[in-house]
Nucleic acid binder design. Structure first.
Lengths: 175, 175
DNA sequence: AATGTATCTGAACATCTGTTCAGATAAAAC
DNA sequence: GTTTTATCTGAACAGATGTTCAGATACATT
């Protein structure tokens, strides 16, 4: 996973992966049908864990608290899995049509959770967004952007970053 | 460029590139010292054009108008160069240290323009952001996210997308 | 028409690619 | 202690990779 994140799926050979886990290349084929299966497995696992972790949280009552919860969850989860996030966002094009569709469905599920929050908030009059679908994608892009600059050990804690982004998210959807 | 965007730098061979321009692989070496030089050339050209296009615009007077101008410019420019943007954001890891630093410097220049706008706005009391550097990166990530979903010929025009995002940007940095 | 310059071809190079598989090795089940 | 099962090795495979280069081709200048 670290190898894929650092060099890219296509640039990493089965022999490098095998060396990474201390084994010969041929042995990998006891665990994956082919190279793409390996990538797909990692991606699917990541998305499953994302949705599972999300489902475990108990949802607050009002949309504003739900949005804050989503924001903090998204940032915290993505920050502690920088490699997985990177690969899952970057290597989609290396999946064949079927595998791509599977991952895309999972991603859509996750996006739908945020969109549902926004819609409820708009209906309740506590949010105002020009277009709930676009707002969803815009906010997720903004939040996921943390991964491009955050490095553990920097001047800000995860909690502080959460708060900074929450401030902007809250205002962006304010009426 | 289209090939790099669709399949990724590492997944595209020199022979494929050559075929794309109707030539044999060897002929490419009259134009680039090696494969990475080709990627670097495309990236550098893209960043130069970005900064040049930005420099051509005459800047509005107040920070609010400047921010709107930046937002609309960024979206419009990035939407009409989907492939270049995609490659420039995705293939950074395939550059060696020196080339990477060059591109990174150009990107930083661009980000600094937005940050300067934000700082002026904060100083003038028309903006309020928790951290101007982070806000810069957050906004750029959000705006660049358009490239993940927008397809020409969809239900929204570029101008409409600009306006939708501008609404969210404006509110996100509001006092 | 003859020369010089720039570009392109097509083959060759050494090396790497994903994948397969017979046989070695180890662990588990009886 | 023997047999079954699972896992790993190491070599082999056919083909692709980036890059080089002598020679062909086309074009511009004299």
């Amino acid at each position: 996973m670290r190898l894929f994140a650092q060099h890219g799926y296509a640039a990493v050979s089965m022999r490098q992966i095998a060396a990474g886990v201390g084994v010969q290349a041929g042995a990998l084929y006891n665990y994956t049908p082919d190279k793409q299966g390996l990538l797909f497995g990692l991606m699917r696992e990541h998305m499953d864990e994302l949705l599972a972790a999300r489902a475990e949280r108990d949802v607050p009552a009002d949309p504003l608290a739900q949005l804050e919860d989503f924001t903090r969850f998204h940032i915290a989860f993505h920050m502690e899995r920088a490699d997985e996030v990177f690969v899952s966002y970057m290597e989609l094009r290396n999946l064949d049509a079927e595998n791509f569709a599977t991952i895309e469905t999972l991603r859509r599920q996750y996006e739908d959770e945020l969109e549902a929050i926004l819609r409820r908030g708009v209906a309740a009059g506590v949010f105002s967004v020009p277009d709930s679908k676009i707002a969803t994608l815009a906010l997720i892009a903004m939040l996921t952007g943390v991964n491009t600059w955050y490095r553990t050990g920097g001047r800000l804690s995860v909690r502080e970053v959460e708060t900074i982004y929450w401030d902007m998210v809250r205002k962006a959807v304010a009426p």
